[in-house]
Amino acid sequence: MEYSYPINLDWSKDEMATVINFYQAVEKAYEVGIDTSEIKVKYSDFKQVVRSIGEEKSLGKEFEKASGYSAYRVMQLVKNATTSKIKMQP
């Protein structure tokens, strides 16, 4: 797929990379599956950059609009997971 990740141009390169890594983990959850521990770490790192819930929701909506993948739905599945790996159903 060809789309841009939603980022804030005020972030440092490391912060941008952290946010992109989280969105790539969301993509992985849809495409091939991901270990819950892996995505929890990426989400924790993401929250160090995107601290406000409002900004997280806004970025999440932009990402979903561009990619069709919902970071919110992935994290809800992770939160309720009873297995060590998840894969989103289309």
Rank of each mutant, 00 (worst) to 15 (best):
E2Y: 09
Y5C: 04
I7P: 01
I7K: 09
N8D: 12
D10R: 15
D10W: 05
W11F: 07
S12A: 13
K13A: 14
D14W: 07
E15Y: 04
E15T: 06
M16H: 10
A17N: 02
A17K: 07
T18C: 06
I20M: 04
A25R: 07
V26T: 06
V26Y: 02
E27D: 15
K28R: 10
A29K: 05
D35C: 01
D35H: 05
T36V: 13
S37M: 10
I39N: 05
I39M: 10
S44M: 10
D45W: 03
K47H: 04
Q48M: 11
Q48T: 15
R51D: 15
S52N: 12
I53D: 11
I53T: 13
E55H: 14
E55L: 12
S58K: 15
S58D: 14
L59D: 02
L59A: 01
G60D: 02
K61I: 03
E62V: 01
E62T: 05
F63L: 02
F63N: 00
E64C: 01
K65D: 10
K65I: 09
K65E: 11
A66E: 08
A66Y: 04
A66S: 09
S67I: 01
S67R: 02
G68C: 04
S70R: 02
Y72I: 13
R73K: 13
M75F: 08
L77A: 09
L77Y: 06
K79L: 07
N80L: 11
A81F: 08
A81C: 10
T82N: 15
S84K: 11
K85I: 09
K87L: 09
P90E: 13
P90Q: 14
P90L: 11
